[in-house]
């Protein structure tokens, strides 16, 4: 790995650390709000499980794509990235559906502080996933057109870092928000 790539990866790692602290503030806020109530009545754990599976699998396919990138197999890599993209889109799709259902049933973010915190925390993660999808799309198109240049490779590995990082945040989300919230 070139020194320049290492520097960029390290800088990106530091950015991820700051993002972690952004999420920390939202988690702390949620924990404070959860003192006042519970969302267990309106979450559907089966859906959350499905979301989790989609995201975990997308992490795996993303890792496979990186393996093929290192072997310089452009087409195979793009295939696995496309799979990652689809799984990630599935996740966002389900999340939007869940949000829409909750709002329809009168549990929107304006309901009270707890729901504001719920929508903001889960939504911020969802927004990150969506930005990751956009980034993936742009990078895939660039690779398709220009081939696997070294700068694209280095960008791709940062994208993979981002993607795995979002999984970690999701682990915290389903543990604190959904599972802990569903314990009686």
């Amino acid at each position: 790995m070139s020194s320049e790539t290492r520097t960029r990866e390290f800088g990106f790692w530091i950015y991820l650390m700051t993002d972690l602290i952004l999420f920390t503030s939202l988690f702390a806020t949620y924990a404070v709000m959860a003192r006042e109530g519970s969302i267990s009545a309106i979450v559907d754990l089966r859906q959350v499980f499905l979301e989790t599976m989609l995201l975990l699998s997308s992490s795996a396919t993303c890792a496979v794509a990186m393996v093929f990138m290192e072997r310089r197999k452009k087409e195979t890599m793009l295939f696995w990235l496309a799979a990652t993209f689809l799984l990630g889109s599935g996740f966002v799709f389900i999340e939007i559906g869940e949000f829409a259902r909750m709002i329809r049933e009168g549990y929107g973010p304006q309901r009270n502080g707890l729901f504001s915190a719920f929508f903001t925390l889960v939504g911020t993660h969802g927004l990150h996933v969506s930005m990751g999808l956009l980034w993936m799309l742009v990078t895939m198109m660039q690779t398709w057109m220009t081939g696997l240049s070294s700068s694209l490779q280095s960008r791709m590995s940062r994208l993979a870092m981002f993607w795995h990082f979002l999984d970690i945040v999701w682990i915290c989300v389903f543990t604190e928000v959904y599972l802990l919230g569903s314990l009686s």
Binding site: L45, L56, S59, V64, E70, L179
Partner: peptide, 26 residues
């Protein structure tokens, strides 16, 4: 590397399963 990824993936599936099971089995 692929083996490591596979092991990591399976492990995280297992742990996720445990988490959901603990909550849903009541």
């Amino acid at each position: 590397k692929a083996g490591k990824y596979a092991a990591g993936f399976l492990l995280s599936l297992l742990l996720t399963g445990i988490s959901f099971w603990v909550v849903t089995s009541h």
